[in-house]
């Protein structure tokens, strides 16, 4: 109630009708334009911790052999171990530490892209924070979303984390060289993925052994503008 005259008209509703993630989505849109103007392909790599994203990148960089040129944005809560591993392959990498944050957002990726200054017709891989929940919601301005899962994780991952797998256009199933030692049912995994995302392409490979890897590198080459 109004303290001046006792009227009840002291509160007014203001419609906002605004997407909560509008700010991130605007920044992501700007990143997408920035990348398109430079003919640079950006790929958002997401997975749980330990599925082999960094090992996948190391071999990708090696096998592509500089054509196209690769640079990497590394997201982790703390440390720069991963960026150091990428730099050891001879390619440019920027480490982003999110501290308590559980995902990268379009703002931090914009700053990292400025630092990296990727050349035309190159690829920027954004290795997101290892987490199958939060990164799914945040558009970074990437052209492709790749989710990496590994055969040591259990074949029901797509059902347990449907938002993440539904957001992918490619799913890489890594560490297939370990299949003889595990109880992992690849067909069941493919079936679970099909249930949450029938459009996603599934690539089975081993980033350490190299089996199936050319399917992945051919795909990446085909994406480059």
């Amino acid at each position: 109630m109004c303290g001046t005259c006792g009227c009840s008209a002291n509160s007014v509703t203001i419609p906002l009708e605004q997407r909560v993630l509008a700010r991130n989505d605007d920044l992501a849109h700007r990143n997408r334009e920035w990348l398109a103007q430079r003919d640079v392909l950006a790929v958002n790599l997401m997975s749980s911790p330990g599925s082999g994203k960094t090992t996948l990148l190391e071999r990708t960089i090696r096998d592509l052999g500089g054509d196209p040129v690769v640079s990497v944005v590394e997201g982790d809560q703390e440390t720069s171990f991963d960026a150091e591993r990428i730099r050891a392959t001879g390619c440019r990498a920027v480490q982003v530490n999110t501290g308590a944050g559980c995902h990268l957002d379009a703002g931090v990726v914009a700053a990292a892209l400025d630092d990296l200054a990727p050349p035309a017709h190159s690829v920027v891989f954004v290795e997101n924070v290892g987490n199958l929940v939060c990164p799914a919601l945040f558009d970074l301005g990437e052209r492709h979303r790749v989710v990496v899962a590994s055969v040591t994780e259990g074949e029901n991952k797509p059902l347990k984390y449907p938002h993440m797998f539904a957001a992918a256009d490619v799913v890489v199933l890594n560490k297939t060289d370990l299949l003889p030692h595990l109880d992992f049912d690849v067909d069941a995994f493919a079936g679970h993925l099909d249930r949450v995302n029938p459009r996603a392409a599934l690539i089975r490979l081993s980033a350490t052994g190299g089996t199936g890897f050319e399917v992945w590198t051919d795909l990446v080459r085909g994406w480059v503008p």
């Binding site: 109004c2 303290g3 001046t4 005259c5 009227c7 008209a9 002291n10 509160s11 007014v12 509703t13 203001i14 419609p15 906002l16 009708e17 605004q18 997407r19 909560v20 993630l21």
Partner: peptide
């Protein structure tokens, strides 16, 4: 995932 509206207090 939207902010629909807010209410604000206005002086009488």
């Amino acid at each position: 995932l939207r902010i629909r509206s807010v209410e604000v207090s206005v002086p009488c």
